[in-house]
Design a protein around this nucleic acid. Structure first.
Lengths: 207, 207
DNA sequence: AACCATTTGTGAAAAATTTCACAAACAAGA
DNA sequence: TCTTGTTTGTGAAATTTTTCACAAATGGTT
């Protein structure tokens, strides 16, 4: 069963949307209603859901809870995952303290920084460690995901440590490509300046 | 001349890479060297560059400065752009104070928040305004780009104001779809929790 | 000048993804 | 029960994007 990468992105978006619906007490919804809310086409929604098997009800649409659980179990959102933040500057500490994570099944269980001063002065409930401890702590705390908010110059070095610790995925805020060699690790690149560039480029090209 | 969206993303990545090379004093580089550094195929690089016209030298490769300027002028990176941040919580103020922006041709010229307390206590050199002033200030300061770091509940409302101000592009950190109606505006969605979800989904599906 | 090693640019093939269109299934009301 | 209106699921078409493969161009060397 092959699910296209863009479909995975949309399904995870859909999952969060369904959580919202559930919170609002909505029990059932059609693909076209979903599509309108998410800015997509209804066929798109159906196709994406279809990759995970049949689940809808012809005539009425999808049962919200059922669909949510369906996506959840197929995509692996059905149990808590441990995560960490590497690089505790402004951005890193902002991310470390997001509340949304818990709600969505992630728990930030560690922060890392190479600067001892930062570790001593930081104000947070989460355990923080020096960067040289990354490999050990990642193993010890069973950390699956990492957010990288270090200066670009140390990004690869830190990545290597995470890989050795057996990390599963990295969200990279660094502007730069991270080599993960042959490790079975996915990297998601997030770059605000890059996002600006893309927006400008798109609007320039279509003028 | 049609440039695929993914190619635009890669070209902007390439642009930043070229800046780096220039800083290091490297004058010339081949598509395969670029590709290795950026984790892509060399044909990919050539094709992408090709969308903007011929520029390389057979036998040697690309002249770094020339290629950089070429991309710059085609993609619109050749002059400073004004930007703003809406929502001055931890994340918003962290982003507002990134130094990288200036280097890359962006200048954050305003911050907005609906909470007067936040505006009064914030410590920054950038001018800050209440959210109801968004439309006016965006027009007045000629702001082309906005970063959205408000709670999801107020995202659409703030977006509407930005649109009325004539914004060109929005980088949305809110987990949720922003309606931009018929405005010719691009939105780039950045969502850390969503990124986690995608990483988990990808690694779950390929198990 | 002749030769060899590189490297670009690009048609064409392949692969991936999106869109379309409609039969089949169901709901709800008369 | 019959009819009408929805809505799913999905093959097939269309589109988009990536990959391939190689001719043509250039640099460097002898």
């Amino acid at each position: 069963m092959k699910v296209p990468k863009p479909a995975v992105a949309r399904l995870s978006m859909l999952y969060r949307f369904l959580e919202e619906l559930e919170k609002q007490g909505i029990q059932s919804i059609s693909s076209s209603k979903i599509a309108a809310q998410l800015g997509l086409g209804s066929h798109n929604i159906r196709k994406d859901i279809g990759y995970l098997g049949e689940i809808g009800n012809t005539g009425s649409g999808y049962d919200v809870k059922r669909l949510k659980d369906h996506i959840s179990s197929h995509l692996g959102f059905d149990h808590e995952r441990h995560a960490c933040v590497v690089g505790l500057g402004r951005l890193g500490s902002a991310i470390m303290n997001f509340d949304n994570f818990i709600v969505n099944g992630y728990r930030i269980v560690a922060g890392f920084d190479s600067n001892i001063n930062v570790l001593e002065t930081i104000k947070t409930d989460i355990d923080v460690y020096p960067s040289h401890a990354i490999e050990d702590i990642v193993k010890q705390k069973n950390i699956e995901l990492a957010v990288l908010t270090v200066p670009v110059a140390s990004a690869q070095e830190v990545t290597d440590k995470l890989l050795q610790g057996g990390i599963q995925g990295i969200v990279n805020f660094t502007p730069g490509y991270l080599k993960v060699y042959d490790y079975p690790v996915y990297v998601s690149n997030i770059d605000v300046v890059g996002a600006f560039d893309e927006l400008i480029a798109l609007s320039t090209l279509n003028r």
